[in-house]
């Protein structure tokens, strides 16, 4: 987007990072971004990352109305400035992307039971040598990942089948990412910055999950965790 505003998906909502600079200009490019985005933004729950910018309730209220005119629901404001936070809270806006602020919660509002979840791609086939999947979120494969195939995911990688190719979970540096497979025998396994190769298989294949524990890559049999 040429207006230079970074948009990213968080759960079911969109988060826009609002850069520093005169508010008039920033506001204009923000509205332009929304207009340029067209259908992408339509009906979206929008969060704004304002950092330490000071905005009063009047500014925020006007912004909310202007976004509403364009079909966008301003839902949360992420700010460190105290004035902005209290103005946002007064307007009933959430102060983080996780859940609405306490003040916004109406007494008769039902408890939120729907989990937003994370973005993932489903690959419903076997990945053969030369195939590769690159995705910023999680990757789920229903099939095998053969030697010579490659998966690079920003989040977790789950393979319902044999995993024998190269796999990188948490490629953006997320140390909490995991790799699970019914038969975990990758050519090379990476989580965030750690790299490992599969040890020699002893006995029959079992479902396993690889993760980082104290900075070390470990693979654990799924059954262990299940019994614990």
């Amino acid at each position: 987007m040429n207006s230079g505003l970074a948009v990213k998906g968080v759960g079911e909502s969109l988060l826009i990072h609002v850069p520093a600079g005169p508010w008039d200009e920033v506001l204009a490019s923000l509205l332009q971004t929304v207009v340029d985005g067209g259908e992408f933004f339509h009906g979206a729950k929008l969060g704004l990352q304002l950092e330490d910018r000071e905005l009063g309730a009047a500014d925020l209220g006007r912004l909310r109305d202007q976004l509403a005119e364009r079909g966008v629901n301003l839902w949360a404001v992420l700010a460190t400035a105290q004035g902005t936070r209290s103005a946002a809270a007064d307007l009933g806006l959430a102060l983080d992307m996780g859940r609405p602020s306490q003040r916004a919660m109406q007494p008769d509002e039902p408890i939120e039971t729907e989990l937003p979840g994370d973005a993932a791609v489903l690959v419903r086939r076997t990945l053969r040598s030369g195939h590769h999947v690159h995705f910023a979120g999680h990757v789920v494969v229903l099939g095998d990942v053969n030697p010579g195939a490659e998966i690079i995911a920003g989040g977790d990688v789950i393979v319902w089948g044999r995993l024998r190719g190269v796999v990188h979970a948490g490629a953006g540096g997320d140390q909490d990412s995991v790799v699970c497979a019914l038969d975990l025998a990758p050519t090379q396994l990476r989580i965030a910055g750690q790299i490992a190769v599969s040890p020699e298989r002893r006995g029959a294949a079992q479902p396993e999950m690889a993760r980082l524990r104290d900075g070390q890559l470990v693979a654990e049999k799924w059954i262990d965790e299940h019994r614990r």
Binding site: R128, S129, G130, H131, N146, P147, G148
Partner: peptide, 12 residues
């Protein structure tokens, strides 16, 4: 076998 796998992917 690795090359055969690649070819199978292309044929598919």
């Amino acid at each position: 076998v690795r090359d055969a796998d690649r070819i199978i992917g292309l044929v598919e």
